[in-house]
Every structure is written in structure tokens, then in C-alpha cells.
Design a protein around this nucleic acid. Structure first.
Length: 897
RNA sequence: GCGCGAUUAGCUCAGGGGGAGAGCGCUUCCCUGACACGGAAGAGGUCGUAAGUUCAAAUCUUACAUCGCGCACCA
């Protein structure tokens, strides 16, 4: 590489990342079935399919996407290099409420509401929004370098997808799994729609418990009033009863006498009745019952046959049922007025401060109103059974496994799923009504006239929950429901998919429902492995959100650290337990690592002027102990990767790669190679080994850092004419893992020790790093060490070193004793005898402590009887070594005296 | 209330039955012909507390404390 010396020593990601992405895309490597992709695949290899969790079309890339898509890409790229035909299905989600909110906000800026536009034009505006913003995140994914099949982008509102939705709805409808009911549901007064139970976010908030006096119409005995406690006094306007526990002695007489309460602020008389639900120990043991505005009250009301009085309208303002003084007030205004009116009447007993959970809309954070209305539901009771079994039997496996408990907990306590939304943006419920004869049915095709009476039909106004469409994602994206022939092919080859990687907060909303619907409609699980990745929090451990303003834009991180740096830095932080407290400083080491890789490759390349590229893929040529040592380390790395990968231990594998490349390859082997390259007899083999090890390392690193590895690999004369690293072969793990040269590893360990000791001695005596020193080494195997003379001299910056099996302590020298070696360094005139003596004594004391511990262990009968034999051997060896070194040190100390 | 995590170097975190590791930060020295986004040498920890199991516990068990998350909530 004659140009390498002109290159900046700092790696600049921007200069190459876009270039390689386009190269890969142009060659069709992302695309299943393309010529480029097919050339890369090994015949008979198992396909590897992943569906991306479809980002919302409202979205920008956030840290969760950055992490999740990095992890998926690591898996997909590795599978591709292993010769498996891969397909990573990409697409976006129409995100009903979220998108509708965005479009409404945009309209609001023009002073308009969706009602000004009307349904048709509003939906058109949503589509325009989608066209404008839907591609933003896809483009951002591309800057991350993820290898999705971008040639075939899916969307949850496409025509094909709509067909799948229709098929699902009609099937479930005709099997009585979808039904319509008049129920209390979670109503978001701001979004104006119903929500499912798991779309409600409960937050612990400070509130009050108001104790209200409810006078009886007729006193019973000497009881003339009841006191009820409530967190929502305004709902008393909708009370239709007061409940007590049937076993409660305090109220038995009231129940028996069918006592009636004169409900304050209204002209209603409501009954006192008994219900087991009431907890005698809480509050006063008497509960005001508002069947239209509380699910528990609704249930009690049904049992007691109470009237349901709805006092709120769809915007949570009081309606005519609340009575004239209150009609039109907001929830909050009504609360204040009810409390002050009751207080004025002397009916407010007292107020208590409490903390309680309040439900909020997961999209807009407005407080949810439990509201009685007509909605569509899915009967989940039987549907969940195969989904529970699939995980129970290990067909679907969660990683980390503990998330299965969360999954089971939800499925085993499943409630029916409210799927209708009073929105305009979404899949409209395909149920048609005839107003003249009462006919009603669900249909895959749009119907206009009644098959019974010929009158015009009316389609249901509501749309489906977004998650109703998302649940079909793994198979609806593979033509299920829209093209049966294609689906049959896809199902045979690419279904179930291999891995689903996602965030833990959508285990219920999405993951579980995909398993449920896939089991029902395809008879198969949708994916084999589920990866629940850590949540990316800010550096203080708080959730990142727009409202907190603590979010970090991955695109900015890519700008600062490169896509590779960001990817590697994120992967490094993935462990099975902890969430990620993200601080961009944590990416520094990864960015620096990329630079290190770049410079190591520069070194290798600039030493290859006389190296002829082999015609076959390069193989190692181990001659020296250093060569054998680095290959042994590569073998160990390979074994670690092979065991770390199946468990999705991304962080562990990333750390192993880092440490091999940095600490073994750069810190030592490259340094060793400098001496070897100067030796004509070793030059060619050393070049081959440098190229081989770097080539393997780049292949292993590619899934994590695709751009820089491709850039460097392209320049490497490795005898591999594959056009891209992305489709080059994964290293032969079995062969590499077999590389193990025990003798060389021991020899290099000694070399490293000797060099380190010489350097330490220099530092201890504040000698210039380049000052020459006379070094002699006493070793039982001087021949072995003598072979490493060139390496030691070069790295320790000394001009001479002698090895003996026996020698007298040289005059005016300091010694270090370790591992059966004694290293003497002559320091004429500057050895501080007292200080050296103290240093050696300190070292001896430490060793003595070790030895005492080891001897105590060896004297322990229990240990000798029960410990594993290799542990006992190891302990004996350690004790012998320690005793040896202590003896040596004692001789040294005596000599100094 | 139930469940799940966490508690290890100044900070952020790995590890995990046989006397502790990384990154960042810190100290000292060095622009040595791959790299100052670098190199070399260092300092720094009784692994939350208490019991227990074991020949052996930072590692396994239990309890407790503290922090975080999830589920369920009694108005």
C-alpha cells in the first residue's frame, strides 16, 4: 500500500460508510433471491429469516431502534456469512392513534380539526403524512448499515395487508371469537377512542380520599347516614347505589331493611345493598357505586340490577345526566364544585391524602376515563392456550429466559381484547349492517346492498386497534391472506422465522399476540427465539422521552462516532440483566477501537510491499512461538464466539473480540512481528500470519462493524476473490478452534513477563524509556528463551540479554523473581540497596501470605478428600512455586545485606 | 401486595464455587518508523448487611436493607 502513508491516521467513517452501503445494495446482497445473494449462499443451508419490528410511520430513529436493529443485523450478517440464505423483512406500521394524533396536531396549526376535513379527506391527509415521513426512518436505518431487504418494503396498511386483516376478522367473527358488547372500557377523552387494557399506563400519583356523608331517606334505628370514601367525588352524580359487605355487622340492619340513601346534589334515592366485593376493612366499609364509570361498580351494579347513569360525554365533560348546575363542566371543574357544594351542605366529613395508581393514555398521557360504550372484543380465553403451550414446550424461547414468566403471567390472566377504536386512520372494521331488515355480517369483500332485503348497507364506523394488524406481521408480510400460492412457498422455506428481537414493553401488546394469531392461522409458531433487549435509558437511569427532552438522536451519534462505533458500543453494553444507562462517552472506546483496527490494518498493509497475494485463500504459516501463540489466542477467541453466539451474549462476544484484537493482536503480535519482519527467513511467513489473523478478525468483527471491516478487507491480499466481506465465508470455527500450541503459549507468557519487568524497572528508577540496560536471565530452560531474544530485545529496548541456567547475582543489579525466572538488570551506581531490599521483602511477605494460605488448604483433610484432583494439583503447584520464589528472594535479600 | 432485576475500583458495568476484571477517569513517563482517538508503567476494591450450605462463597440458599422495573390493585 504505497498510499497508506499519506492517509490520515484517524479513521474517518464518513468517507466510506455511504459508499459501502450503496455497494452492498447495488450487488443485491440484502435481497433474498438476488444473484448476489444467491452466489453467497451455500446449497442446502437453512434459511435465516427475521422480521423487523415495524417502526411507526410517525417516527424518527431513537436509541431503542439503534440498539435493536444493531442486534438483529449482527445475527443476520453472521448467518449470511455462514452461507445461509437470509431475509430480513422490513417495513413500517401505520400506528393508528400515534399517526392520527400527529396529523391532527398538524391540522391544529392551521386552526382545523379532523371534522373540518371529514373522514375521507382526513384519511387522505394521513396517507400523505405517511408518504412524507414513512421513509425517514428507513433511510436512517440505512445509515446504520443494517442489512434489511429494502427492495421489498412492507406496510401494515398496504392492500395485501388489508386482505390479511379482513381474513382474520371474518374468520374470528364467524367463529364467535369476535363479538360486540356494551362494556366499561378505557376511554381516552383526548384521543376520543377506546383503548385496550394494556394500552393504559398506570402511574402512582398523589390524590385524596374524600369522605362523604350520605343521608338515609328514613333512619334505621339510630342510624341516619352513611359515610362513603371516594377518590373521585364528581362521579357521585352518577351513583345508583351504596354497597356494603354482607357480613358487615355495622350495616346488616340497613341491608335487611332495604334502606335508601338520599343522594345529595340530586333528586335520586338509591339503595343500600350487600356485595361480597366490598372490603370491610377499607375506608368506612361502605362504597358508593357508579356502574357507568367504574368497572368494579359496573359488575356490582349488574349483580344488584342497578341503573347505569352515564354522566360524561366523549370529552369527559359532564352531560345532561349530571344535572343542570354541573352540565358542561370538565372532570376537574366538576370535582371542585361537587366537593365545595357538599362541604357547604355539611356533607363533607373529612379528606385524607393518599397515593394511588391513575391510568393514562399510552399515546397522549391524558387520564383515562372508564366509560360505558359499545365496542368490539376478541374472546381470548381459548386463543391463548396454544400460545402458552408453545413457550411452555420450548418451541418459542425467550432470551433472557426470565421474560417467559412475564409472558405467562399475562396470558394466564388474559381478559378479552377491546379492538375497536373510534379513529379514522386504520383498518375499518369489516362489518356491514342493514338498517332496514337488521341483517349484519362481516365480509372480506366490501358490500353495498343487503343480501336479504336489497337495502343499502352501512359499514361499521370504527377502525381496528393497530396491534390487531401488527399481530399478523410475521406472516402477513409473507403473503399470508393475500396470495395463497406465495404464502405456501414462503411458509415452506421461511416460516417460522428464526428470531424476533424487541423491547420488553411490547411483550404483551405485540409478541404474545403474534404467537396467538400465528398459532391460530398458520398452525405454527411465528418465530423460534425471542430476544428481549435492554432498555436504553439516559445516563441517570431515566426513560428517554420527548417530554423529558433527554432523548439522544442516533443519527448524531453516527455523525460523531461512525455507525460502526455506535453499533459496537451499543452491542458492548448488552448483558442479560441490566438496562443501559447510556452516555455518549461510552462510545468513545468503540470509536477509538475502530481507529485501532484501521491503524493495525495500515501497519499490515504497509509491510506487504513484497508480498505476493496467494492464489488460494490464505492459510497461516506458524514458524515461531509468537506465530503459534497468536494462532492459539485466535483459537481461543473462536471457541468463545462459538459458545457466546447461541445464547445471544452480544456484550460478551464484543468484549472478547475487542480484547483479542487490541490486547493480543495489536499490543503484542504486531510488536513481535516487527522483529520477525526484519528477519529474511521469517518475513514471508510473518506476512502470511499477519494477513491471516487480520482476515479472520475482520470476518468475526464484520457483523458488529460492517463498514470499516469491509473497507479494510477489500485491501487485504488474502487470496479470497469474493466481491464483498458481507458475503465472504465465516471463518471455519472448527478448524480455528483446534489451533492450540501449549508450549508456545508458555514461552510467550515468559517473554511478556520479562519485557514487562524490564519496563517496570525502568519506570521505578525513572530511567528514560530508551536507556539501554544489561539484562541477564536465569531460567531452567535458557534455550527456549534464547529463541525469543530478538523479540525481547526489541520490545524491551535493550541491546543485549543473556540467558543462563545458573548464574551468580551480577554486581549492582536489581532482580525480579517470578514463574521460575530470575531477571537481573544492571543499574550501576543507581541501585538504592535499602529500597531494593525493602521492595523484595515486601514482595516476599506477600508471597509468604499466599503460601500460608495454600499450605493451610493442603493441610485441610476435607480439601484433600473432596476437592477435584486438578484443583489439588494446581494448589500444590502454586505452593511449590511460591516456596521457590520465596527461597530465591531470601537469597537475594541476603546478598543485598 | 405479588413478581423480576440490581447492589463489585472515583464513575459506568462485566464476571461468577478454588484469593477480583474492562471501559472511562486519575498519577508518572513517552510525538519509539500502525495508531497521541496512541504507547509504557502505576495507584485504586474486606464484591450491600447478616446467617446458612460447602473442604472452599464475591459466586449457591435464606432473611434484611437500599434502588429500579413490571403486574395487580380497596372505593
Amino acid at each position: 500500500m504505497d498510499t497508506s502513508k499519506q492517509l490520515d491516521t484517524h479513521y474517518d467513517p464518513k468517507a466510506i460508510e455511504g459508499k459501502w452501503f450503496n455497494f452492498w445494495q447495488d450487488h443485491g446482497y440484502f435481497q433474498r433471491g438476488s444473484a448476489g445473494a444467491q452466489a453467497a449462499a451455500t446449497p442446502d443451508a437453512q434459511p435465516f429469516t427475521v422480521v423487523i419490528p415495524p417502526p411507526n410511520v410517525t417516527g424518527m430513529l431513537h436509541m431503542g431502534h439503534a440498539l435493536n436493529n444493531t442486534l438483529q443485523d449482527i445475527l443476520v450478517r453472521q448467518a449470511r456469512m455462514q452461507g445461509r440464505p437470509t431475509r430480513w423483512i422490513v417495513g413500517t406500521d401505520h400506528a393508528g392513534i400515534a399517526t392520527q394524533n400527529k396529523v391532527e396536531q398538524a391540522l391544529a396549526k392551521q386552526g382545523k380539526t379532523r371534522f373540518d376535513l371529514g373522514r375521507e379527506d382526513f384519511v387522505k391527509a394521513c396517507w400523505e403524512w405517511r408518504d412524507d415521513y414513512g421513509s425517514i426512518i428507513i433511510n436512517q436505518l440505512k445509515t446504520m448499515g443494517v442489512s434489511c431487504d429494502f427492495s421489498d418494503e412492507k406496510f401494515t396498511m398496504s392492500d395485501d395487508y388489508a386482505k390479511a386483516i379482513r381474513r382474520v376478522f371474518v374468520d374470528w367473527y364467524h367463529h364467535d371469537l369476535i363479538y360486540r358488547g356494551h362494556r366499561i372500557i378505557n376511554w381516552c377523552p383526548r384521543c376520543g377512542t377506546a383503548l385496550a387494557d394494556d394500552e393504559v399506563v398506570h402511574k402512582e400519583e398523589k390524590g385524596h380520599l374524600w369522605y362523604l356523608r350520605y343521608p338515609l331517606v328514613e333512619p334505621v334505628g339510630d342510624v341516619s347516614e352513611l359515610i362513603v370514601a371516594t377518590t373521585r367525588p364528581e362521579t357521585m352524580l352518577g351513583d345508583t347505589g351504596v354497597a356494603v359487605n354482607p357480613a358487615d355487622e355495622r350495616y346488616k340492619e340497613l341491608v335487611q331493611n332495604h334502606a335508601m340513601v338520599k343522594l345529595p346534589l340530586t333528586d335520586r334515592q338509591i339503595p343500600v345493598f350487600a356485595d361480597d366485593y366490598v372490603d370491610m376493612a377499607y375506608g368506612t366499609g361502605a362504597v358508593k357505586v357508579t356502574p357507568a364509570h367504574d368497572p368494579n361498580d359496573f359488575a356490582m351494579g349488574e349483580r344488584a340490577g342497578l341503573e347505569q347513569i352515564n354522566i360524561f360525554d366523549a370529552t369527559a365533560h359532564l352531560n345532561e345526566n349530571a344535572g343542570a348546575p354541573y352540565q358542561g363542566l370538565s372532570r376537574e371543574q366538576a370535582r371542585d364544585k361537587v366537593v365545595s357544594d357538599l362541604d357547604a351542605l355539611g356533607l363533607l366529613d373529612h379528606i385524607e391524602d393518599i397515593s394511588h395508581a391513575v391510568g393514562h393514555c399510552y399515546r397522549c398521557d391524558t387520564i383515562i376515563e372508564p366509560w360505558l360504550s359499545e365496542q368490539w372484543f376478541v374472546d381470548m380465553q381459548d386463543l391463548v392456550k396454544p400460545a402458552i403451550a408453545a413457550v411452555r414446550q420450548g418451541e418459542v424461547v425467550f432470551n433472557p429466559k426470565r421474560w417467559e414468566k412475564v409472558y405467562f403471567n399475562w396470558l394466564e390472566n388474559i381478559r378479552d381484547w377491546c379492538i375497536s377504536r373510534q379513529l379514522w386512520w386504520g383498518h375499518r372494521i369489516p362489518v356491514f349492517y342493514c338498517d332496514s331488515c337488521g341483517w349484519q355480517d362481516a365480509s372480506e369483500e366490501d358490500l353495498t346492498v343487503c343480501p336479504e332485503c336489497g337495502a343499502p348497507l352501512r359499514q361499521d364506523e370504527d377502525v381496528l386497534d393497530t396491534w390487531f394488524s401488527s399481530q399478523l406481521w410475521p406472516f402477513a408480510t409473507q403473503e399470508w391472506g393475500s396470495d395463497d400460492a406465495k404464502w405456501a412457498q414462503n411458509q415452506a422455506a421461511y416460516y417460522p422465522t428464526n428470531v424476533l428481537s424487541t423491547a420488553r414493553d411490547i411483550i404483551f401488546l405485540w409478541v404474545a399476540r403474534m404467537v396467538i394469531s400465528s398459532e391460530y392461522f398458520t398452525g405454527q409458531i411465528p418465530f423460534k427465539d425471542v430476544i428481549i433487549h435492554p432498555t436504553v435509558l439516559d445516563k441517570h437511569g431515566d426513560i428517554m422521552s420527548k417530554s423529558r427532552g433527554n432523548g439522544i438522536d442516533p443519527v448524531e451519534l453516527i455523525d460523531k462516532f461512525g455507525a460502526d462505533g455506535m453499533r459496537f458500543g451499543l452491542a458492548l453494553q448488552v448483558t442479560g440483566n441490566q438496562d443501559i444507562k447510556f452516555d455518549e462517552n461510552k462510545l468513545k472506546s468503540s470509536r477509538n477501537f475502530a481507529t485501532k483496527i484501521y491503524n493495525a490494518a495500515r501497519f499490515v498493509l504497509m509491510n506487504l510491499e513484497d508480498f505476493a497475494e496467494p492464489s488460494e485463500r490464505i492459510t497461516p504459516d506458524p514458524r515461531t512461538d509468537a506465530d503459534k501463540w497468536i494462532l492459539s489466542e485466535l483459537g481461543e477467541l473462536t471457541r468463545k464466539i462459538a459458545t457466546g453466539q447461541p445464547g445471544y451474549f452480544f456484550g460478551a462476544v464484543a468484549r472478547d473480540l475487542y480484547s483479542f484484537f487490541y490486547n493480543d493482536f495489536c499490543d503484542w503480535y504486531i510488536e513481535f512481528s516487527k522483529a520477525q519482519l526484519d528477519d529474511p527467513a521469517l518475513r514471508r511467513s510473518t506476512q502470511a500470519n499477519l494477513v491471516f489473523v487480520l482476515d479472520c478478525a475482520l470476518r468475526f468483527l464484520h457483523p458488529f462493524m460492517p463498514f470499516i471491516t469491509e473497507e479494510l478487507w477489500q485491501k487485504l491480499p488474502n487470496g479470497d476473490d469474493t466481491p464483498s466481506l458481507m458475503v465472504a465465508a465465516w471463518p471455519d470455527e472448527e478448524r480455528l478452534a483446534g489451533l492450540e500450541f501449549g508450549h508456545a503459549q508458555a514461552a510467550i507468557a515468559a517473554v511478556v513477563n520479562i519485557i514487562t519487568n524490564i519496563r517496570s524497572t525502568r519506570a521505578r528508577y525513572h530511567l528514560p524509556p530508551a536507556q539501554d540496560l544489561a539484562v541477564t536471565v536465569k531460567s531452567s530452560e535458557p534455550e527456549t528463551l534464547r529463541e525469543q531474544e530478538a523479540l525481547i530485545k526489541r520490545l524491551a529496548k535493550i541491546s543485549d540479554i543473556q540467558f543462563y541456567s545458573d548464574l551468580e547475582r551480577p554486581k549492582e543489579s536489581v532482580v525480579t523473581v517470578f514463574g521460575g525466572l530470575e531477571v537481573y538488570i544492571k543499574l550501576s551506581g543507581i541501585v538504592d540497596l535499602a529500597a531494593e531490599s525493602a521492595r523484595l521483602a515486601k514482595k516476599r511477605a506477600a508471597l509468604q501470605k499466599d503460601l500460608d494460605r495454600l499450605n493451610k488448604k493442603l493441610a485441610n483433610q476435607g480439601f484433600m478428600a473432596k476437592a477435584a484432583s486438578e484443583i489439588i494439583e494446581e494448589t500444590k503447584q502454586k505452593a511449590a512455586d511460591a516456596a521457590d520464589e520465596i527461597a530465591n528472594l531470601t537469597t537475594q535479600i541476603d546478598a543485598l545485606a
